[in-house]
Simulated scan of single mutants.
Amino acid sequence: MHTTKYIGIDIGGTKIQVGVVQDGVIVQELRFETSTTASKEQILAELASHLETVVDAEVAGIGIGAPGLVDEENGIVYKVQNIPSWQEVHLKQYLTRHFDKPVYLTNDANAFAVGEKMYGQGQPFANLVGLALGTGFGAGIIINHDVYSGVLSSAGEFGCIPYRDKTLEDYCSGKFFTQQTGRPGAEWHALAAQGNAEALNVLTEYGRHLGNAIKIILFAMAPQAIFLGGSVSKCFNYFRGGLYESLQEFPFQIVTEQLVIAPSAIENVAVLGAAALCKMKQELLPTPLTMPSL
């Protein structure tokens, strides 16, 4: 007997990744470049053409994580960075008509959080935050086992909060390394692995900044767990000391003592999360009431 299949789509500025997911495992995968300078209609047609190779009768839904602002209810994506023609794309309507399947959208940070909640270390927790630490600083929020997106999926934009002379994103993403040290985080990570004292100090300083961001998240959301994804999270063992040093300043130590902070252990979590969004939303649908027979 076949289990339900979902399609997960991670839309990036330069590539789109598609996965066919069964039981939390990607059983088929597609990757293709985004025609960033093409028209909105051409990019949609290319996406549909690729999806035609994997969508079949067993697929129960299509989930999408997209950068930019997302109207989840109406399935509209706004202002996708690096794709100039995608200023307003009625993606749900287009794909629903093309494939006659339920389509669910959220932004990419939310997709990460949903993937961690449904298939990763986040499963035991009702309330968690997923932090995507890469070229930017994005956050996905799970409240009472469901994703909380706010207006146009803009909830969790902690990276835009003013911090020092810039914003939290400037100090808590990969931008910290390039802007403050002139070298990418991957180089500092490699040096730290060799025991380089300067690299260890740089990553400790980064951890202190990230700890300050997490304190803000604790004041605002008080989650049970925070999971870290993105390229910078791979340095966790080298910045965790600075992070926890910063958290020692949080006034409610009973909160931090219970808080779980861990890097994600899931590969392709954005694709899995997009597929999991379908499963989550469909499981949360209310059961139709039936009238008793007289």
Rank of each mutant, 00 (worst) to 15 (best):
H2Q: 15
Y6D: 14
G12F: 04
V18M: 04
V20R: 01
V21N: 11
V21W: 09
G24T: 06
V27E: 13
Q28S: 12
R31W: 01
S35N: 07
S35G: 07
T36N: 06
T36P: 05
L44K: 01
E46G: 01
E52D: 12
V54P: 06
V55D: 10
I62D: 09
N74R: 10
N74Q: 09
G75V: 04
G75W: 05
N82S: 10
I83T: 05
P84L: 04
S85V: 02
S85K: 02
K92V: 02
L95H: 11
D100Y: 05
P102K: 10
T106H: 11
D108M: 02
A111Y: 09
V129Y: 01
V129G: 02
L131Q: 08
L131V: 15
A132H: 01
G138C: 03
S154K: 10
A155W: 03
G156Q: 02
G156Y: 00
F158V: 00
G159I: 00
I161W: 02
P162S: 04
Y163L: 00
L168A: 01
D170T: 00
F176K: 04
F176P: 05
T181A: 05
R183Y: 14
P184V: 00
A186E: 12
W188M: 14
L191A: 12
E198L: 08
V202W: 11
T204C: 09
T204S: 09
Y206Q: 04
G207S: 06
G207T: 08
A213V: 07
A220M: 14
L228F: 06
R240G: 02
G242N: 09
Y244I: 09
E257D: 15
Q258A: 15
P263M: 03
N268A: 12
N268M: 08
A270S: 13
A270F: 13
V271S: 09
L272T: 02
A274Q: 03
A276H: 07
L277C: 05
L277I: 07
P288C: 11
P292Y: 08
